[in-house]
Every structure is written in structure tokens, then in C-alpha cells.
Design a protein around this nucleic acid. Structure first.
Length: 110
DNA sequence: GTAATGACCTTGG
DNA sequence: ACCAAGGCCATTA
């Protein structure tokens, strides 16, 4: 049961460049449902069920904290993946998050 | 169909 | 500045 909302979220997340991270609120806001930030995270929950693996590890919360690492196959996988992307992770937190922050409005604009 | 939960964010005290 | 509670939207039970 694929929902357009999910697909849209996956689309945006897949558009995230390598070595960059984004936040749920940003994606939700880009989709026009800033209040549905929770639904965005929910979509990530189904991300592992999607055909193209969605880089959910590039999606973190507003604080740059890897809140959803627990939902990964392995909590360390997410951190490892982030480090693989040249992203420094410190204590489940993205270093220079604001610098690595990828804003859909900036890149995707409208 | 109703109730409860959730990888969050915003606002109030 | 810090701590606490509410709200929103969709999914699942």
C-alpha cells in the first residue's frame, strides 16, 4: 500500500546529495505539511520496504540527532554509513549539522 | 469505525 | 536559559 506521501518523502530523501543531511521538518515543510513531521519519520519506517534503498541515515531530527538509528538494521550501520559519507558523527549526533544541513528549499527550490 | 502510537516540532511555564 | 506539555497527520491494531 504505497502512499503518495511516502513516495514523495522518499523522493526528496533520495535527492539528498552525498555527505549531506536533512531534517524531518524540512522535508515535511517542503511537502507542504510542516505539521506532519512525524509522518515523514513514519515514511522512513517503511523506507526499508521501498525498492531503492532510501538513505534514511541522511535524515535526522531538527537537533541533528540520529533518533532513528534504532530503527535501522543495526544502530551502528547508520553511523557507519554517515561516516562513509564523510559525515562525522559524535555521540549519535551529526557534527557541523548546520553546515552539512541540506535544505530542500535551497536546492529543490519551488 | 474507534483508539493508540510514532525515526517530530512548536510553544508555554 | 531549561523543563514540560500539546499538536499535527498518517499508519496500525
Amino acid at each position: 500500500m504505497e502512499k503518495d506521501f511516502f513516495q514523495m518523502v522518499f523522493q526528496v530523501v533520495r535527492l539528498i546529495p552525498k555527505g549531506r543531511v536533512s531534517s524531518y521538518g524540512a522535508i515535511a515543510a517542503y511537502l507542504g505539511a510542516k505539521s506532519s513531521s512525524r509522518v515523514v519519520g513514519y515514511a522512513m519506517n517503511s523506507a526499508h520496504s521501498v525498492k531503492p534503498k532510501v538513505p534514511a541515515h541522511r535524515v535526522v531530527n531538527r537537533n541533528g540527532l540520529l533518533t532513528g538509528k534504532h530503527h535501522f538494521e543495526t544502530p551502528f550501520k547508520m553511523q557507519e554509513l554517515l561516516e562513509k559519507e564523510n559525515i562525522k558523527v559524535k555521540d549519535n549526533q551529526v557534527v557541523d549539522f548546520k553546515k552539512l544541513y541540506w535544505d530542500p528549499f535551497e536546492e529543490l527550490k519551488m
